[in-house]
């Protein structure tokens, strides 16, 4: 099984987001970087499939040179090779991102490395466009399904399951080659081992310069939503507060008095 996984480097924001003074970006000076949990599950899934069935896996990102970190994180848990579509840090819109990924897949496949399966996150953690995977699949003429939380690959078919709108699960079966966008909960990703990290450090990263275009949506600026502005009422300290808490539960009507 030959698998490609697409991941996007995003800041690991914690309790609050601060923006740069021009309101164009998140101020990332004091932040680490990560990928979406959905994409972490895509990476883990690829590693498991290759462990069980053989083949190989590649991870791809379109981002600044520093995004090499996210590629090495993926290789540290067992992805075989990495491709960086290196940008100058500008934001690529979903059409440009998909086009760059499609061009890379075509080039790789023409050079004798076809992919049975291309995995995406359901949506990027930051921009949340909900579309790059579908755009790539449509351009390549491959079947695609999104929101997948369980995946089985057997006899050239991807059997997939996602939450149904009315509860329970709905199932799909896609002949390979196919494109699948996944959600967190698909599996429980492992943590990288020290030897895994060392191995990943020594691996080559293939670099490609992606074409730039801008169709939209075109960002004018970012802003924080209006605060709900609640003032916290401290009920007390330690277990002595229990009686006040129970009074509150009664007052809120969640406990019969």
């Amino acid at each position: 099984m030959e698998i490609l996984i697409c991941v996007k480097r995003v800041p690991a924001t914690g309790g609050r987001i601060s923006l740069t003074p021009d309101g164009q970006e998140i101020d990332t000076r004091y932040l680490g970087f990560t990928v979406s949990p959905h994409e972490e599950c895509a990476v883990e899934e690829a590693v498991r499939v290759v462990e069980a069935q053989g083949g190989s896996s590649a991870v791809l990102t379109l981002g600044p040179a520093a995004a090499e970190e996210q590629l090495r994180d993926a290789m540290a848990i067992g992805i075989d090779r990495a491709i960086l579509l290196e940008t100058d840090g500008r934001e690529y819109d979903p059409i440009a991102t998909a086009a760059a990924i499609v061009a890379t897949v075509r080039a790789q496949e023409a050079a004798g490395a076809p992919f049975d399966l291309i995995l995406f996150g359901n949506e990027a953690a930051d921009t949340g466009g909900f579309q790059v995977g579908i755009r790539v699949a449509v351009a390549l003429g491959r079947p695609v399904v999104t929101g997948i939380k369980s995946l089985t690959l057997r006899d050239g078919v991807a059997a997939a399951r996602r939450e149904a709108p009315t509860g329970g699960w709905e199932t799909y079966e896609l002949p390979l080659p196919a494109v699948v966008s996944v959600k967190e909960g698909l599996n429980l990703p492992r943590y990288p081992s020290i030897p895994g990290r060392l191995r990943a450090k020594r691996k080559e990263v293939e670099r490609i310069e992606p074409a730039w275009s801008s169709t939209g949506p075109v960002k004018l600026g970012l802003r924080l939503p209006a605060e709900q502005g609640s003032q916290v009422e401290i009920l007390g300290r330690g277990p002595e507060a229990a009686s006040d808490v129970v009074d509150l539960l009664v007052k809120l009507g969640v406990l019969a008095s």
Binding site: G14, G15, R16, Q228, S230, V232, E233, I234, L235, G236, R237, G238, P239, E240, A241, A242, S243, V245, V246, L248, L249, L255
Partner: peptide
């Protein structure tokens, strides 16, 4: 903790003591 910025009420303390105390009081 940032949660205090969105919470309406808070108890400052170790949950391992506070939570059982609330259940016991109920």
């Amino acid at each position: 903790a940032p949660i205090m910025g969105v919470a309406d009420y808070a108890v400052i303390g170790d949950l391992h003591q506070v939570v059982p105390a609330i259940s016991a009081e109920i």
